[in-house]
Design a protein around this nucleic acid. Sequence first.
DNA 1: ACACACTACGTCGAATCTGACATAGTGGGG
DNA 2: CCCCACTATGTCAGATTCGACGTAGTGTGT
Lengths: 105, 105
Amino acid sequence: MDKATSRKLAAAGWTTGDAQEFLGLSDAEAAFVDMKLALAADLRARRLEKHLNQTQVARIIGSSQSRVAKMEAADASVSVDLLIRALLKLGAERRDVAQAVAASV
Amino acid sequence: MDKATSRKLAAAGWTTGDAQEFLGLSDAEAAFVDMKLALAADLRARRLEKHLNQTQVARIIGSSQSRVAKMEAADASVSVDLLIRALLKLGAERRDVAQAVAASV
DNA sequence: ACACACTACGTCGAATCTGACATAGTGGGG
DNA sequence: CCCCACTATGTCAGATTCGACGTAGTGTGT
């Protein structure tokens, strides 16, 4: 990070220590993973609530059973995009998604 | 117009031509793009609040100025994944992201 | 034990997304 | 007008994610 950038960040109330920066990124990554887990859990809960199996959900959202399984498992090959789109296609409202995003697993 | 009314009109041979339908967007898709717009707006707001330019944000989140511009514009080539990861790296908490997800643009 | 319904997991070609680069556009000072 | 800092847009090769398929695992009823 150059000095000008550092100065501006400091002016905005940031500290530019290397350790903190590292921890900040870690926090961001951890929060992202937790969000993904929460969304995946919500997807499964929503499916079970509707008494659907993964194959039926796959048809509704335009995918395959195997991918639905990976979604619910929060597999590395599944994006948050996909999870959110799936939830919305299952009838979730934006506020429902928001709640899942904020929720702990 | 509620869905029941819309269905009745459709049965009578009418199309209920709102912008959504014209563009061929389902409710789920519309909600998704709205979410994306809200996240993009939040990213820009957060950057401006910190008095950073797009190049500085790009360094923080590990990307390029052009991509940050596209993020803020909610460009089609930008995923919700990327927007959320960017917000978190800029110091947003999960509840902040949730609020953006639920918010209207 | 068998059949059946359901879920998990590895793999793959195709589609999509990403960072980067180049370049164009915009809006203030001087 | 000319710089200058900043933002927007087009493009592209490489990376990631997607749906799909095959198959293995798990539980349940007969």
